[in-house]
């Protein structure tokens, strides 16, 4: 099952009924199959349009209006919401922080997941057990996980596990989540994120690894590629399609960071002004905080989406470029 999608598309491209038939014929496909497929897709597409695209369109519409505590605004303000947000130092610093966060967390999560996958693939006995152990945090909600991290592991008071350990080794209590000039909260957030997410990506990578034909390794072994070399010149290139997908999911996830932050730092209706991902900020502005500015919320959504698309394209371009280089 290891044929690349490129080959599949290649074979299918040759199957359509040639160039001569009318457009309608071509659209219907052989034996009207495309009509069947359209019918298959219809429920999903309709649902998507109604429950996803209408809200997206609505938010976009709101972004051009002054829409405080209303979804039927009357006062058109053009791009005011956009300029307001882009000149808001809190939102700006949040965007910058989370671009840096994405540049950091995407490779780190990828490397950790890959590391676990490789580690697991190198053992036989107990493989299923360890795989379950690494994977099972996926089942835990952000709410519960954040609770354990915030209230037990990294509680700033003396009874937190981390602080108890610190004191045992002669250290002092640390206020982990305090912020200010104390950046330890990043450690808390990142460890939480990795715990929750690494298992899932590990599974995707294991699947990718398993699709690498045995013969490729054999050939590499004959050429004397072992250890790191094998990883660099055999495993990673063969894993490229999986890598692209995983990186894209990670990138989207990094920019859409929300739940773990809200649950780690937020109180009821309150949120500190550090460790604030763009989405949390927008959420506070438009729904979860003390104001309900849906115009700003809509504008922010568009800005963040734009950034994700931009970074996604850049990432794809980078990966493709390295591929081209290799081919040369």
């Amino acid at each position: 099952m290891s044929q690349g999608s490129a080959t599949v598309r290649g074979t299918s491209a040759s199957s359509p009924a040639g160039r001569t038939p009318s457009l309608w014929r071509r659209m219907r496909g052989p034996q009207g199959r495309n009509l069947w497929y359209a019918a298959f897709a219809a429920p999903f597409i309709i649902g998507l349009l109604v429950f996803v695209y209408i809200p997206i369109g609505w938010s976009t519409y709101l972004s051009f209006f002054e829409a405080r505590a209303t979804i039927r605004p009357t006062k058109f303000v053009g791009l005011d919401n956009y300029t307001y947000l882009l000149s808001d130092p809190i939102f700006r610093s949040s965007l910058v922080t989370f671009m840096i966060f994405a540049l950091f967390i995407v490779p780190v999560t990828y490397v950790c997941s890959l590391g676990l996958a490789l580690l697991l693939n190198g053992v036989r006995w107990g493989q299923a057990f360890f795989r379950s152990v690494f994977f099972i945090p996926t089942a835990v909600s952000y709410v519960v996980a954040a609770m354990v991290w915030r209230l037990s592991f990294f509680n700033g008071a003396r009874f937190g596990l981390a602080n108890s350990m610190l004191r045992q080794f002669g250290g002092e209590n640390k206020a982990w989540l305090l912020g200010g000039d104390n950046y330890w909260y990043w450690f808390v957030v990142i460890s939480l994120r990795l715990w929750l997410q690494v298992g899932f990506y590990m599974i995707l990578i294991i699947a990718g690894l398993n699709r690498i034909p045995f013969e490729t390794y054999e050939a590499a072994a004959i050429d004397g590629a072992t250890g790191w070399k094998r990883l660099l010149y055999v495993t990673l290139p063969q894993l490229r399609t999986t890598t692209v997908a995983v990186l894209m999911l990670l990138l989207i996830g990094a920019f859409q960071a929300f739940d773990e932050f809200l649950n780690l730092f937020g109180g009821i209706g309150t949120y500190p002004n550090f460790a604030r991902p763009p989405l949390v900020h927008l959420y506070l502005i438009s729904l979860g905080g003390s104001q309900q500015d849906l115009g700003l919320g809509g504008a922010g959504t568009i800005i963040v989406t734009g950034l994700i698309v931009l970074f996604g394209l850049a990432q794809t371009w980078l990966v493709n470029r390295s591929e081209r280089k290799e081919r040369r």
């Binding site: 429950f51 695209y53 989207i252 989406t305």
Partner: peptide, 16 residues
């Protein structure tokens, strides 16, 4: 749609 954050658009969804 995977790239559009849902945290904000879900208010219109809710109204609908």
């Amino acid at each position: 749609t995977l790239m559009v954050p849902a945290a904000v658009t879900f208010l219109p969804t809710f109204v609908m």
